[in-house]
Amino acid sequence: MIGPPIRAERLARGFGGVRVLTGVDLTVAAGEVVVLLGPNGAGKTTLLRILALLLAPTGGRLVLFGTDATRAPAALRRRIGYAGHEISCYPDLSGAENLAFYAQLFGVAEPAARIARLLAWAGLDGAGRRPVRTYSRGMSQRLALARALLHEPDLLLLDEPFSGLDPDAVERLQQQLLELRAAGHSIVLATHDVDRAAPVASRIAILHRGRIAWAGDGRADDAAVIVAAYRTIVAERA
């Protein structure tokens, strides 16, 4: 299973006849951080859920790590970490227990050490034994990130990771994403928040009306053009 983490060709998806994605072409290379910009309702969450193998596309082709996504989904899932809108952690279990549960499902080796390290990295080592119900928004978000990283995925998919965070927490999360980028993880980050996402991006793409409307090639001046284009779209809609 070698090949670029993501190669999507003309991905389409409808819900009850409403077409949310109309033909997404997107390739993500190893070590890239692609920021997927789009106003609310552009289809970002749908696209991420398809990439996370939670949703089957109704059209097009998805190849992950050189393997057709409809084949060997279990093996591919081991290489993907997904943190969605919601944190996917049980509120009545502690942070450590949630991670331990998912570690079992993913077959993580030496789970105790891995969990301790992740909790420390996420700044949750003091709160690891408390029920998740008592966590603040920022703590929950960091736990969700830790959960997605638990099995050391090669590809990380993040849906609006900055939402509800205070400025300190945003800065901290940006720091952590840059660390992950440096460590060679591929990341797709979907957001409508240009200012917070741009600093961590190695490439920016705009999702508009169910398609990738503009995609940069990774150069800094190119990114500036795309950000400007995105602001125009948002202004038009408002």
């Binding site: 859920r49 193998l53 944190i87 998912y102 499902l105």
Partner: peptide
């Protein structure tokens, strides 16, 4: 229980039958 916080997505995203 599985709906709260969309835990079902966590289960289905794991390599579990």
């Amino acid at each position: 229980l599985e709906r709260e916080n969309d835990c079902l997505a966590g289960l289905l995203g794991a390599p579990v039958d």
